[in-house]
Simulated assay, not measured.
Amino acid sequence: MSVTPRLKQEDFYRIAPAARDALIALGKAVDASGLEKELTELLKLRISQINGCAFCVNMHLGVARKLGVPGAKLDLVAAWADADIYTPRERAALAWGEALTEFAHGGEMDRAFLALQQEFSQDEIAFLTAAIANINAWNRISVGLRFAPILGG
């Protein structure tokens, strides 16, 4: 399979600045919500892994490292459910992220939401859900257009 970009990131930004700006604005709203940036970056990393987005995995690994997220949490996030190093809050957010990304139905989605309610306020749940929707949108753009990861940056 070719990994040649279908459209380069900078070309997408040039062609669709309003779309780019809308997604960036949503990310800024989440950042301003008071949710822990370390948590949201861990969530973005896991969702990007699920979606197979090399561009976003690379980017969010870099951001998480700069924020000081422990390396073990970054290394094990793909298997977070089987690793006891995540806080109940992180586990609830990751479960909700996976449920929404994989469109879990019925009991699984309900269980994830109940766990979320134990750890997050209603306002936080709204912004976590927005963060999940936002990274899924970025992943679909990046994967669909085959944005190349920016290495060494």
Rank of each mutant, 00 (worst) to 15 (best):
M1A: 05
S2H: 07
S2M: 04
V3P: 00
T4Q: 11
K8G: 00
Q9T: 08
E10L: 02
D11P: 04
D11H: 02
F12N: 13
Y13L: 10
I15W: 08
I15C: 06
I15L: 12
A16L: 07
A16D: 08
P17H: 02
A19H: 08
L23K: 12
I24P: 00
G27R: 08
K28E: 10
D31Y: 10
D31A: 15
D31M: 13
S33L: 10
L35A: 01
K37F: 05
E38G: 08
T40G: 01
E41D: 06
L42V: 06
L42G: 02
L43P: 13
K44I: 00
R46Q: 13
S48F: 08
S48I: 07
Q49T: 02
N51R: 06
N51I: 07
G52H: 03
G52K: 05
C53T: 12
C53K: 06
F55I: 12
N58I: 08
M59S: 11
H60W: 03
H60T: 03
L61K: 03
G62W: 11
V63T: 11
V63W: 10
V63Q: 12
A64M: 05
L67A: 12
G68S: 00
G68H: 03
G68Q: 05
V69Q: 05
V69A: 07
G71A: 14
G71F: 01
A72Y: 00
L74H: 02
L74I: 14
A78Q: 10
A78F: 03
A78Y: 04
A78W: 07
W80Q: 05
A81K: 10
D82T: 10
D84N: 09
D84Q: 09
Y86V: 01
Y86G: 01
P88I: 06
R91K: 10
A92Y: 11
A93W: 10
A95I: 02
A95K: 07
W96V: 01
W96Q: 09
W96F: 12
E98R: 09
L100Y: 15
L100A: 11
T101I: 06
T101L: 08
H105C: 09
H105K: 15
G106E: 15
M109T: 11
A112C: 11
F113L: 11
F113N: 08
A115K: 14
A115S: 07
Q117F: 01
Q117R: 14
Q117K: 10
Q117G: 00
Q118G: 11
Q118D: 14
Q118Y: 03
E119W: 06
E119I: 06
F120R: 10
S121G: 07
Q122I: 07
Q122T: 14
E124I: 05
E124G: 06
A126W: 11
A130H: 03
A131V: 07
I132R: 11
A133H: 04
A137E: 13
A137G: 08
W138H: 14
W138Y: 15
W138A: 04
R140D: 13
R140E: 13
I141L: 15
I141T: 14
S142Y: 07
L145G: 06
R146S: 03
R146G: 04
R146V: 12
F147Q: 04
F147E: 09
A148N: 02
P149K: 01
P149Y: 05
P149M: 09
L151R: 13
G152A: 04
G152E: 09
G153M: 03
G153F: 01
